[in-house]
Each structure stands twice: as C-alpha cells, then as structure tokens.
C-alpha cells in the first residue's frame, strides 16, 4: 500500500464522513420538526401526548400493553392518562415516571408482571424506544446511556433516534389517526367473530411457561423499581404497583415472590394475576395475557373498589 493508495482511502472515508454527517443532521432536523407536531400513533405520538399533559394529571398509568389495554383510567380519575405501551417494560416506564413534575401531587400506577422482575435476561432494551428524545431531553439521554442499550453510532448519526419511526411520524403528521384531545391513553379491546375463534384456540393451547423459580429478582429491574419508589416518596407521589389478570397463570410461587418483593420495600401492590382463574368465560380474554373490554369492566370494578382508600387519601 503506497502513499497514493493511503491518500485515496482517506479521501474516500473523509468524503463519506462529511456527506453522512451533514445529511444526517439535515434529515434529523426535518423529522424532528415534524415529530414535535405529532400527537397520535403508538410509537412517538403517544409519548409526545404524555409529555404535554403529564404535569396536569392526577393519575398516570405506566407499563406494557397489559397496562394499556387493562386500566381504564377514567374509572379512577377524570384527570388521568394511561401511558401503557406495547412491548414496554420496566426501564421505559421508570424513565418516564422520573420525568413527572417534582411537586405536583399525583398517583402513579405502575403495572409490573412477575416476568419483568425475575427474567434474568432482561437488560432494559425497551428503553431504546425513548430514542426519539435522546438528543432532546437530558434526563432520558442519561437513563439510556446508563443502561448501555444505545448504539454508539447514535452519538454521530442522530437519525438513529428516529430509526423505524420516520414513516409513522410522517403518516400521523399528514393524517392523525384520532383526535388526541379526546384520548386518555386507554385502548379497550373488542373482538370480531374470527378473532374469537383464534382466541379460543389460543386459550386452549398449553404453554411451556418459564416460572423463573430458580432466579432471584433481576438486579436492573429491582433497581428501577426502587428508584421509582424513592422518586415517588420524595416528590409528592403515591406509587401503586399493579399486576392485572392473566389467563390461568401457572406460576403461583413467582406471583407470590413479586408481592413479597413489593411488601419488603413498603410498596403498595395489588396483585390480580389469578383473579379470573375460576371464571370459564372466554369472552373476558383476547389471548392468555390480554383482557377484552368485557374482562376489563369486571376487573376494574375490583380494582377501583380496592383503590378507593388510596384515592381518598390523595
């Protein structure tokens, strides 16, 4: 390799770096401008919506799709928002909880499943769904950096913040999917006849579920829950952890260990995972982990009754 070759290679690499760096920032700036105006859609719109209303809400719900589809916030308080989202776990929710206003009195309902606490493989990968705020909200960037789930190239190429999101953002910008002012974050599920048939097959199937009996709590998950507990304790928030029903959940010991974990830390935990074990009505279910609106109605009666004292205290 002679000097001429070295120069040619360096020139090519320099050109690529300069072109990509400039183009990346231009594209990022364009998408970011559009993104700020988007309040619908599950990936970015709902997050923007939450960030815009979080300071005024009395009750905020966090968690996975089970939180999203199971907790009808309006049954709890008028000023409430359900920030449950498909595929999100503890890291994502805990990070958002920490963005809540410091002095406003609020109830934080945090949906946690046993698997989220005891899965030894969990490394907080769901936090990367907050990437769109990586270069915009310092607290979120710090949390993402802490879990080491970020792509180091993201520091150079900012468009990675919008990886897999750009098309959805543009679509929701051009044609919002719903009126976000009427949306409280709760998404009820109802099934058509075909979906009911699929549901019946799914419920009848036997799953080989890992109960994680041999594992202690995942350190990262435990830390996040303790962080959230501390944040709520010192910032005028009441933390309620909830576990909603599952269809014939086969791991009672794991469920008990979750409750014990919360009790040991003085965290209020409502565990309804086996609430419908004696019910044979398939209409409550979409699948083994998600309730339909019919199931939610029944579940919410139980939950709201139990929550009454907490609400009155607030």
């Amino acid at each position: 390799m002679n000097n001429k070759d070295i120069k040619a290679v360096l020139k090519l690499l320099a050109c690529i770096l300069i072109i990509t760096y400039i183009a990346d920032k231009l594209i990022y700036w364009q998408i970011d401008n559009i993104c700020d105006k988007v309040y619908t859609g599950q990936s970015v719109g709902k997050l923007n919506h939450f960030l815009s209303v979080k300071d005024t809400m009395d009750v905020v719900v966090f968690g996975s799709s089970r939180a999203n589809h199971h907790i009808d916030t309006k049954e709890i308080a008028e000023k409430s928002f359900n920030m449950g989202l498909d595929g999100k776990q503890i890291a994502y929710s805990a990070t958002l909880i920490k963005t809540l206003p410091k002095n406003k009195k609020q109830i934080v309902i945090f949906h946690v499943d046993p698997i989220e606490l005891f899965d030894p493989e969990y490394k907080g990968a769901d936090i990367i769904h907050l990437n769109s705020k990586y270069h915009k909200i310092k607290e979120i960037a710090q949390e993402i950096d802490k879990t080491e789930q970020y792509n180091f190239l993201q520091k150079i190429y900012w468009t990675i913040d919008y990886n897999h999101k750009a098309i959805g953002i543009v679509r929701n910008y051009l044609k919002p999917q719903y009126d976000y002012k009427l949306y409280d974050g709760y998404d009820p599920i109802s099934l058509n006849e075909k979906q009911k048939k699929i549901r019946d097959i799914t419920l009848a199937a036997i799953d080989d579920l890992d109960c994680f009996d041999e594992y202690n709590s995942n350190k990262l998950s435990a830390n996040y829950i303790e962080d959230v507990h501390e944040f709520c304790r010192t910032n005028n928030k009441k933390l309620v952890v909830i576990t909603s029903p599952k269809h014939q959940y086969p791991c009672p010991s794991t469920s008990k260990r979750l409750t014990k974990f919360m009790e040991d830390r003085g965290i209020k935990h409502y565990n309804y995972i086996n609430l419908f074990d004696k019910e044979t009505n398939n209409d409550y279910w979409k699948d083994k982990t998600h309730l339909t609106s019919i199931g939610v109605e029944k579940f919410m009666q139980e939950f709201v009754n139990n929550m009454k004292n907490t609400l009155n205290d607030n």
Partner: peptide, 8 residues
C-alpha cells in the same frame, strides 16, 4: 448509511 440509520 443513511438508509441503515433510519431503517435498520
């Protein structure tokens, strides 16, 4: 590279 950043 830019396609990869946006769509990987």
């Amino acid at each position: 590279i830019l396609i990869l950043c946006a769509f990987y």
